[in-house]
Amino acid sequence: MTRNPLYFMIALLIALTSCSDKEDPIIDDEPLLPKPTASFTYEVVDPKDPFTIKFTNTSTNYGATRWSFDDDSTSSEASPTHTFLKTGSFVVKLVTVNDEGFWAQREETVRIVPSELMQLVASPSADGLRMSYETDVNVAKTQWFIRENEQTSHLESEEPDMKLDIPDGQFVNAYVVLTTPKGSVMSMNMLLASLGIVRDLTTLDNEFTVSHENGGGRDAGEGSSKLIDNNITTKWFVGGINDSYFYWQFEYYQPQVVNGYSMTSGNDADDRDPRDWDILGSNDGQNWTVLDSRTNENFSSRRLTRIFSFDNATPYTFYRIHIKARKSSSAFQMSEFRMLKLPTAQ
């Protein structure tokens, strides 16, 4: 009996297949669990304690959480409550992780702003100036400090208010520190005159321009931006001015009443200090009124801040500071300039 060769081939294939006990591996790169998401909301629970914030986790598909609060503290709770110990901006991060190691992250910025939590109140009288504050925050301790210079301050009062006798034409740098029962701290600086609080308008909604720029540009190490950065350890330097018309200017989006200003001398080379200058005001940038004029002024030491006042009750859009002469140099430098609104008698 003759068998068909095809029969033998099929039988051999079946035999080889049945003799193998190995199976082809099944590769599955897909996660067995859904990937996590990360999201949260936050709120101040008690307006009397704005430093304590409740974070509510609205994430999904997670097994563990990691929180960081941008103040060297962390939490692994699902929805923690956290107390910040100072004012400022804090980038709060939430990381969620599932059991397979997949993770997601969410960031939100929490801002605690002193000016939104407290308001300074100045009450001038024949007996002097009384400073106090208004706040809805629970305060456990109040401290009023007077700045003697950039490095030194002394404690003036630990009462809810502070009383000062400030001679006309003089100014006092001060600040108040409020501490809550949980130890959170907020503070506020103030420049005071005999009639109340001096308002700083230097960076209030305006365009700041200069006639001559530092060779490295506005934002260079000694560029014009350093003139109004509120830091007396930096300075603006311009060389080769000679006899050209040299000025800097503020153009406010809304007209402002300015009746004072401060100048801080540079760190070296007193021959670059301003000697003669005018302060001018305008509402069209073309027609100018001289508001204050100074000649033969002298800065007796380096990084010395002097405050000048003048009579003005008219709001102007433009204010120009025209430096007519330096002490002797063709170059100019100044560490800081501030535009001020001084309190006036009511």
Results as ranks from 00 to 15, higher is better:
E134G: 03
G260S: 02
G223K: 01
E30P: 00
T58A: 10
L304T: 12
M339T: 05
M9R: 14
F318K: 07
T58G: 06
D24W: 06
R218Q: 05
M1P: 01
E100F: 08
R218F: 12
Q256P: 02
E148V: 07
Q286W: 01
D270Y: 10
A220R: 08
R66K: 12
T289D: 11
P36Y: 14
V44L: 02
N312M: 06
T203C: 09
K141W: 09
L155E: 03
T209W: 00
D24V: 13
E213K: 15
D200E: 15
R302W: 12
T180C: 02
F102N: 04
D292T: 12
D271Y: 11
R294Q: 15
T264A: 06
G169N: 13
G101C: 08
I112L: 02
G196E: 07
T58Q: 10
N259D: 09
R302S: 12
V95L: 03
L291Y: 10
Y316T: 02
Q170T: 15
N283L: 03
Q286H: 08
E150P: 00
D29M: 06
L227Q: 00
D70V: 05
M190R: 02
S123I: 11
A78C: 11
V95W: 01
I146M: 02
N138D: 15
V91L: 13
F299D: 11
I10T: 13
T87I: 02
T142C: 14
S115R: 06
V210I: 13
L33I: 13
F40V: 07
T314C: 04
L16T: 11
A313R: 08
M1G: 04
W103G: 00
A126M: 05
T142L: 10
S157Q: 05
D229N: 15
S184Y: 03
S335T: 14
Q170D: 14
L6A: 11
T65S: 13
A140L: 12
L6N: 08
S89D: 15
T295M: 12
G63K: 07
P5D: 10
T56P: 03
T202C: 06
G239Y: 02
Q105L: 14
A64P: 00
I307H: 08
D28N: 14
T83G: 06
P34I: 14
G183W: 10
D168W: 08
A15S: 08
D72S: 12
W248G: 02
D311N: 08
D127N: 05
